[in-house]
Design a protein around this nucleic acid. Structure first.
Lengths: 325, 325
DNA sequence: TATCAGAATTTGATCGTTCAAGACCTAGAG
DNA sequence: CTCTAGGTCTTGAACGATCAAATTCTGATA
């Protein structure tokens, strides 16, 4: 198998290299008849554009980078993985490829940006796990690198485009579902205040239920969740249902309910594998759609057809009702 | 920020382009004093090799491709994700980057190989989920594309290097653990015969226990597992412990035990998030190490320092003991 | 001091594509 | 019949690195 270059195609179609290039990149400037002839040659020879050569000339690699993080919490880690699946699909459809990298902390990540940009000419980045005072966005913005975040810029103005899940709407829907099922004392089991995501999830529950409601806050995990739920359930006027900020906490709540012998409906968040396996009702994030929207926004940025102001997308999650509520 | 090329560095260090190139790629041919001077210039200017340009000349991209699959089974899907994390780390250490792709079925995957190879000059592939009559390996081998599989070539001779987990050793360890705990009637809950992985897991249990043992086979999943375990537990001489081919099946077995009121120890396989969350004893695959070994083998292949015969690596899994056994 | 081998460095060509500019052709206007 | 505009196509240069070959330097030997 000889190497097929643009010159091979040109020779076979009886035109110049540039004309072949035009057929590929700007077909409308080529006469129809010629265009067809070249296209035939391309398929006949199985020609494919060499990305490296194209990249050298144009400075664009058609590559986007995403960080893959070591699954910290085994339960919740899968959320980002599912997002990654969706992004790979969406990128492929748009003619881009996804490159992975890992980084320990924001500073290391920024160093990696630098390397990826200068060595691989990466076209864009998708950032996940945004947080308060995130230094990554400003670094990228200062260098005019196209990027989109999955997760809003907590505590910062909307200076770039982002896609996020409406966490509050998720817990609100869960709370409403419990109300409709007849529950009146609906509690919330969440994380300590300060994390954007956690606060939003609490806020959704609070919005539906009004001023009152038993709640507890603890670090994420099954054990802490069980402990916190247990003390809620042993109180004078215990909740009959608990909305939880994660499936891990929800799992803990279920354990606590069993141990204390109290009947308690439980709703988790993220609809992880664990939820499906044990029949836990949970709020499900539309991760594939979030990924597709991220890619859509990136596409606009990269094609220069993006509006001058940032676009923000807030997607509603859905409640997956199973046995526990 | 001006673009820093090899010429910029050369000018600053007062040498030619080629000498800079030599410092980077074959430092031993450059005199020590010159080498130092060039190195200083490189760091002072923050120079980084442009991969596209290098690739055009050398035909090597320092990119390896891995397929990311839509998590079919929510529980077991995470196994490959963890492998992917490990591979990204290992590749980064070796100076390679991981590129993702998706494909629906073997044929689509082979078409993708073709595209990735001609368009991106991919250096190598890591294949996962090998199976009987896998057409992918022969396609790649026929074109001399370097690759390694995570999973042995089921039913085919060892014509390429691979890394795999010793599944049989895993279930054997689980069975021995149960024996040591005093169990005598130890059953096996697995998949229908024919899948290499499933057969191996069954074989490990069988090897330890000898000819006898109650067992059942069913498709993977919590429900099927519960049904199959239930009928085992209701038999005349029910098992007091069950070794399962997956955490999903194990979860079903636990449900069945609770429902039938029988006391039954359960061991799962894969040590997924679910296992950790509910305290299921499970066999854990050393995925990070498997990934590192895969990268190691690929490195050998790519540097031309691989032995002429294929290397095969079989890694022992470990038993993570929790409450259920 | 002249010679030579080997080490150290430089020069020119090249990878496959796209950009920028120029050449050619056709048709309609003057 | 000439000129021009617009459409179509071609040519040479460039992107940033490495390869292969040529050149210069160094130090030891005769």
């Amino acid at each position: 198998m000889e190497k097929v270059t643009i010159a091979t195609v040109a020779r076979r179609a009886g035109v110049s290299r540039q004309t072949v290039s035009n057929v590929i990149n700007t077909p409308d400037v080529v006469r129809e008849e010629t265009r067809e002839r070249v296209r035939e040659a391309i398929t006949a020879l199985g020609y494919r554009v060499n990305q490296a050569a194209r990249q050298m000339r144009t400075g664009r690699s058609r590559l986007i980078a995403v960080r893959i993080e070591p699954a910290r919490d085994g339960i919740n880690g899968s959320v980002l993985d599912r997002f990654l699946h969706g992004l790979t699909d969406a990128a492929g459809l748009a003619g881009y490829r996804v490159m992975l990298y890992t980084a320990d902390g924001d500073d290391a990540e920024i160093a990696t940006y630098d390397e990826l940009l200068s060595a691989y000419d990466l076209d864009a980045f998708v950032l996940t796990s945004t947080h308060h005072g995130d230094p990554r966005t400003s670094w990228l913005a200062a260098r005019d690198v196209p990027f989109v975040t999955f997760g809003r810029p907590w505590g910062a103005p909307d200076t770039h485009s982002w896609v996020d899940i409406d966490n509050a709407a998720g817990t609100a829907a869960a709370t409403e579902h419990l109300l409709a099922a007849g529950h009146r004392r609906i509690g919330f089991l969440g994380w300590p205040a300060g994390s954007g995501v956690g606060d939003a999830r609490r806020e959704g529950w609070h919005r539906v239920l009004g001023p009152w409601g038993p709640s507890a806050a603890t670090v994420d995990g099954v054990e802490p969740g069980a402990a916190a739920a247990s003390s809620l359930l042993r109180s004078d006027d215990p909740p009959t249902a608990l909305v939880c900020a994660s499936d891990s906490l929800a799992l803990g709540a279920l354990q606590a309910a069993r141990e204390t012998g109290r009947d308690c409906a439980v709703v988790g968040f993220d609809d992880t594998a664990v939820a499906g396996a044990i029949g836990l009702t949970s709020v499900s994030q539309p991760l594939a759609e979030a990924a597709a929207r991220c890619m859509g926004l990136l596409g606009e940025l990269l094609d220069g057809r993006a509006p001058s102001f940032p676009t923000t997308v807030l997607l509603p999650p859905s409640l997956v009702v199973r046995q526990t509520a």
